[in-house]
């Protein structure tokens, strides 16, 4: 049993910072929020309705960024983004993809399979999904690991923008995230 008796609600325009020691169940909590893990008991609601019942309607509003980058090493950055955008159900907007590539600083590398990129660059490709996404709920599990300084700044800006636009960010990280507007809530797991 990792955790029990957890009860919280998050409003729009909030950053929820989940903290806790290693093994306290941060990842499990985040995966439960996404529906990747079914808790033994309890319910997760989105806009007042059970996420299980909402199913696809909930997943449309959700973006999950896990320990794995979720990009194919044999596809180029732009191909990866195209597939991700199509699967999210969006019309693929080429100019938006190019804009996202420019923002993560990978223009010029778009023809290379991501396998040829550095660790940090791969992470940036994965981050580009945040730029392209329309989902109001972001669930980010340790997004700052393996990022270089520039990418950390970019991610912080992205999170701040998302919260400022009324989105929700749930994340685990060991560092503080500065916000321009909106509020930060903290949840501490474990004793």
């Amino acid at each position: 049993m990792l955790f029990s008796g957890l009860d919280f609600a998050v409003a729009g325009g909030t950053l929820l910072h989940v903290r806790g020691a290693n093994g306290s169940g941060k990842t499990t909590l985040l995966r439960s929020l996404c529906g990747l893990f079914t808790p033994d008991s309890g319910e997760i609601r989105w806009n007042g309705e059970s996420t299980r019942r909402l199913g696809e309607d909930y997943r449309r509003d959700l973006l999950y960024f896990g320990h794995l980058n979720g990009i194919k090493a044999d596809l180029t950055g732009i191909e990866n983004l195209r597939v991700a955008a199509t699967l999210d159900g969006d019309r693929v907007d080429e100019s938006a993809i190019w804009a996202a590539l420019a923002r993560i600083g990978l223009v010029g590398f778009e023809d290379l399979p991501t396998r040829m990129l550095s660790q940090g660059q791969k992470k940036r490709v994965a981050l580009a999904r945040l730029i392209l996404s329309n989902a109001p709920l972001w669930v980010l599990d340790e997004p700052f690991t393996a990022l270089d300084v520039g990418a950390v700044d970019l991610l912080e800006t992205l999170i701040a923008e998302h919260v400022a636009h009324g989105g929700i960010v749930v994340l685990t990280t060991h560092q503080e995230v500065g916000l321009t507007s909106g509020q930060v809530e903290r949840l501490h797991l474990g004793s």
Binding site: L68, A84, D88
Partner: peptide
Amino acid sequence: YEDGTLEQMVLTAQPLSLL
């Protein structure tokens, strides 16, 4: 499964059986 794209597929708004 290994690179996490499967996880992302499960989480998209598309019916998984179609994918």
